[in-house]
Simulated assay, not measured.
Amino acid sequence: MDQALTGPSREGRKELDNLLQFLRAGDSLVVTRINRLARSISDLQDIVRYLEDKKISLICTQQPIDTSNAAGKMFLNLLGVFAQFETELRRERQLEGIAKAKAEGIYKGRKQSYDHGRVKQLKANGLGVVEIMRQTGISKTHVYRILNKRCI
């Protein structure tokens, strides 16, 4: 699945944008869980503010949230904070695991999809970027990235 669809950002979540545009004053947006709606506390607050401005209530079926009352709004914010905390903890654990694996020589990152040595050799032979692109089928951006890398 595309990162934009699963990451903490609303960017790329076209169906959510379509849904928000479709809702009208007096409607209720019903979701199963708050983490299915927003990926971060700021994202959640933006969505809730948008819904409040449009006079649309938010109801979660698996969590006691109904933004038509004060208790529901408070609980929504608490759940949003905990959801973001959980996301950040998961990310920290992931980074710790990667660092440990790198230190042990287990994790070396994604395999190179281009022959960096060939690109560097072609450049050393005096070829320009355009000719390297033609011979390797690699985009200009990737050729420059390979040539500008300090360690391979």
Rank of each mutant, 00 (worst) to 15 (best):
L95N: 02
L20D: 08
V48K: 03
V48I: 05
L19G: 04
D66V: 10
L51M: 03
C151N: 05
E86N: 09
R150Y: 05
I138M: 00
L19E: 02
L23C: 09
G117L: 07
L29S: 06
V143Y: 09
K73S: 14
L44C: 06
G80N: 02
D53I: 11
L16R: 03
V30T: 15
I65P: 11
S113L: 01
E92S: 03
D66H: 15
G72H: 05
S42L: 10
F85C: 14
D17V: 01
S9A: 07
I34K: 02
I56Y: 04
T6C: 00
L122N: 14
Q135N: 08
V119P: 14
R110G: 11
K108G: 01
K149W: 00
D27Y: 00
L79H: 09
Q121T: 10
L19F: 02
G105L: 04
R24T: 15
E92R: 01
I98D: 06
R118K: 10
R36W: 02
S139F: 15
G126V: 10
S28P: 07
D43L: 11
K111S: 09
T136S: 05
E96V: 05
R10G: 06
L76G: 08
S68F: 13
G117H: 10
R39I: 08
N69E: 09
G26S: 02
C60N: 09
E86M: 11
L89G: 01
R118Q: 08
Q21N: 12
S28N: 08
T87L: 07
T67N: 08
F22H: 15
G7K: 13
L37R: 13
K73F: 02
L16N: 05
R134T: 01
L76Y: 07
R13L: 15
I146Q: 08
V31H: 12
F82M: 03
E88P: 04
Y114D: 02
K108N: 02
T61C: 07
M133Y: 14
Y144W: 13
A71R: 11
A101Y: 04
R49L: 12
R93Y: 00
Q84C: 03
T32N: 11
A83R: 05
M74Q: 04
V130P: 15
E96S: 08
S68V: 06
M133P: 15
A101R: 06
G117C: 03
S57L: 07
L16T: 10
V143Q: 01
P8S: 13
M74V: 14
F22P: 06
G126M: 13
L127G: 11
S139H: 14
M1H: 07
Y107S: 03
I138F: 15
K54P: 14
Q135C: 13
Q62A: 10
L20N: 07
Q21Y: 12
Q62V: 13
P8R: 15
K14M: 15
R145H: 01
K54S: 15
E88K: 05
Q45C: 09
E96T: 08
I98M: 06
G7C: 11
I65R: 09
E96A: 02
L127I: 07
K100W: 00
S57R: 12
G72I: 06
K102Y: 00
R13I: 12
Q135S: 14
A101L: 06
G109C: 08
S40F: 07
